[in-house]
Design a protein around this nucleic acid. Structure first.
Lengths: 217, 217
DNA sequence: TTAGGCTGGGAATGAGATTCCCCTATTATC
DNA sequence: GATAATAGGGGAATCTCATTCCCAGCCTAA
């Protein structure tokens, strides 16, 4: 039996601590999840991404105190929601675009990303764009970081396009960044044009930007 | 002499009213301008676009009441500032890119727009991007409208590119919209890439997107 | 059983935007 | 020229939120 310098049974103590901290962690995880679910419910109910901490707290049947126990700020809640949404979206996109040649897959990805970022679809899934927008003002770093799963996937495909010899001279991962920007941001706010820019238009733009004409059959 | 149904001298009255309303309008314009100047001073002094209405009011030597007399809300002040900046910027861009063939001019415009939107240049001119960002969250319509002078110029040049037979099939004004989006938004927040995307990269991207390869000499 | 320390509830605080009340100065009328 | 009506302006009051604080109840350990 291991005994520490104060004569206490270290192993037993460690195990007890382990058990209790794990329990605490589970409890914490559950509560965090409750807050996240509550936030989603509030957003769905209001069909808007503008909500107060109080609303989330009430919906979650917990207290303001607890909220700040688990989240440093409201921004952090938004960020976590955004990350979760991003994870779900990327999983869905990966699934839907697993088949076909690199270029076709890239096209599908661009169209899907464009759709996800289009405004006015709050009730379906709490969506990307609004969170990102809101957070971008005060925490650009984190938002950019949260985008990385999507970026990684796009970069992956663009690299495959490169491997099949279809790409222009530029470095693939950098081209991927620009493509992603174009797809995420163009959705919705088109300046001055009568009919908004469509996903297909964005795709054609990107396609010619990254693939030389003579490679397009 | 014109007399109205109550026996009053209409012409004199109208003129008096005209004079007084014009005076009032002048006064109003001056005060609005004072608020705008004060806002710019505050922004310059803090080197940040985050300011309170109170700060602007204090700086302007006027009162909160007056502020809300001339602006419906803080957002409106931001919007007006943004419009003014946009006007100045477009004038500067037009001037700097008056010479040369359409494609060269478009290149210069894209690079300049990109620079103007890059972050971290608060002290020079109160700049675009931060205002736009902030406003976009709550008033996307107005922001898009405020962009239109810039959009008109870009569209103009892209149409000239089209007239000189260099453009791909797409409608010029729609291509212009995508180019502008790419230039304004890519600046700064590049997802996952080590070194941020440069203005030149954005330009090369757009160039190939709108001009077929065999037209590029 | 009881002292010590977590937890949680929700009231208090603080920052800001927006509104309101009241005083003053100016105009209009006699 | 005097007075009543009214607009304009100052800045305190209000309202909305995010965030912090205080205290009571509960669980743990001796």
């Amino acid at each position: 039996m291991k005994i520490d310098e104060l004569g206490r049974d270290t192993m037993w103590r460690d195990r007890a601590i382990e058990r209790s901290t794990r329990a605490a962690r589970d409890r914490a995880a559950k509560r965090v999840q409750q807050f996240l679910d509550a936030a989603r419910e509030v957003i769905a109910a209001k069909a808007s991404t503008e909500f107060t901490v109080q609303e989330v707290v009430d919906q979650s049947k917990q207290s303001v105190r607890s909220f700040y126990q688990y989240f440093d700020s409201k921004h952090e809640l938004l960020l976590v929601l955004f990350e979760e949404e991003m994870g779900i979206a990327v999983a869905r996109i990966r699934e839907a675009t697993a088949e076909g040649g690199p270029l076709d897959r890239l096209e599908q990805v661009v169209l899907m990303v464009y759709d996800l970022c289009a405004p006015g679809r709050v009730s379906e899934q709490p969506l990307f764009a609004e969170f990102a927008q809101r957070l971008l003002v005060d925490h650009p770093e984190e938002v950019v970081a949260a985008y990385s799963p999507l970026y990684e996937y796009v970069a992956e495909i663009v690299e495959q396009v490169g491997e099949s010899g279809l790409l222009r001279e530029g470095r693939p991962r950098r081209l991927a960044a620009v493509v992603l920007q174009a797809a995420t941001v163009t959705a919705g706010r088109s300046t001055g044009v009568d009919r908004p820019i469509s996903g297909e238009e964005v795709w054609r733009f990107c396609l010619h930007a990254i693939v030389p004409d003579h490679k397009l059959s």
